[in-house]
């Protein structure tokens, strides 16, 4: 009898664990199916390449795609170098003491700050204090701050995967610390750093709150060319989605467009995640031989 009871417990336990794992797949599949099935009708080349028309009840979402692209580009250009540099300093140069502990604590706390707070900070600092105005630049820098904790943490992890013997070997040959890092550490850590940066960006690209106060517009059909685009307001996919699903008065007409926008946004994020996985895969393969 006792054995039987144990078997039942075992089976029930595993069933619960399995259910939890499948729940995750279930949620993502449902989400994708729901969005794609309801947005499929509007998805077309015109939807991607054209401006909204007729009071946003028709046409495409090109300005929102372009706006998200520009803001993401600014985010990357700001967050990746700063994040890499901070990680190199923390991991390679800094004496592991109180200061480093405080910096790490700050990074961890930054990653927990709600995105709306980043939005308010970006408004106060970039838009007003630095006088950058409501612009792609203000929004991109705000999102850059949001992704910094990710970029730094991922970069540090990447640096830690580079064997100590590469550093010692180079130093023993008379390389300076910077030469060691530049020629014998960074080349092997950069793919891992980029993976982290892309994952951070994928999250940032879908954020609404931080850009809400810093430059996103309800309707801004034409972005100026570079460099003027840096100081222009813009449309963005997540905000466009928010408008279409909650703020528009002709709900029935715009609902499919909202689903179409969601599908494009998700496709973009999934694409970025695949890129990150691909880079990480190549990176691992290269290191297996060591």
């Amino acid at each position: 009898m006792k054995i039987k009871r144990r078997t039942i417990e075992e089976k029930a336990g595993f069933a619960l664990l399995r259910a939890a794992a499948f729940l995750i797949i279930g949620v993502i599949l449902f989400l994708l199916f729901d969005i794609l099935s309801k947005g499929a009708d509007v998805l077309s080349w015109e939807f991607i390449s054209q401006k909204p028309a007729k009071g946003m009840t028709a046409g495409g979402i090109w300005p929102a795609i372009a706006g998200t692209f520009w803001v993401s580009l600014i985010t990357v250009v700001f967050a990746v170098p700063v994040g890499m540099a901070a990680a190199v300093y923390l991991n390679e140069y800094a004496t592991q003491g109180r200061l480093v502990r405080i910096v790490r604590l700050a990074i961890r706390n930054l990653s927990g700050v709600p995105s709306i707070v980043y939005g308010l900070f970006g408004f106060g600092f970039f838009v007003l204090s630095l006088n950058l105005g409501l612009s792609t630049l203000s929004a991109g820098l705000t999102l850059g701050l949001l992704t910094l904790p990710w970029t730094i943490t991922a970069s540090e992890e990447a640096l830690k995967t580079v064997p100590r013997s590469y550093r010692e070997g180079a130093l023993a040959l008379g390389a300076t610390p910077w030469q060691t890092i530049r020629t014998n550490v960074l080349p092997y850590a950069v793919p891992g750093m980029l993976t982290g940066a892309i994952l951070g960006l994928a999250r940032a690209a879908g954020e609404t709150a931080p850009i809400l106060f810093t430059g996103v517009a309800f309707f801004w059909p034409l972005l100026p060319a570079f460099p003027k685009v840096l100081f222009s307001q813009f449309m963005a996919l997540p905000y466009h989605l928010f408008i279409m699903s909650t703020q528009h008065h002709e709900i029935a007409k715009v609902r499919p467009l909202a689903y179409g926008t969601a599908a494009v946004l998700i496709a973009l994020v999934v694409l970025m995640n695949f890129m990150a996985v691909f880079i990480r895969y190549r990176f691992r393969k290269k290191f297996k031989r060591v």
């Binding site: 013997s165 590469y166 010692e168």
Partner: peptide
């Protein structure tokens, strides 16, 4: 003063 380590450490 050059050095050779216990575990060979060729760079990749």
């Amino acid at each position: 003063v050059g050095m050779v380590f216990q575990k060979s450490n060729p760079f990749p």
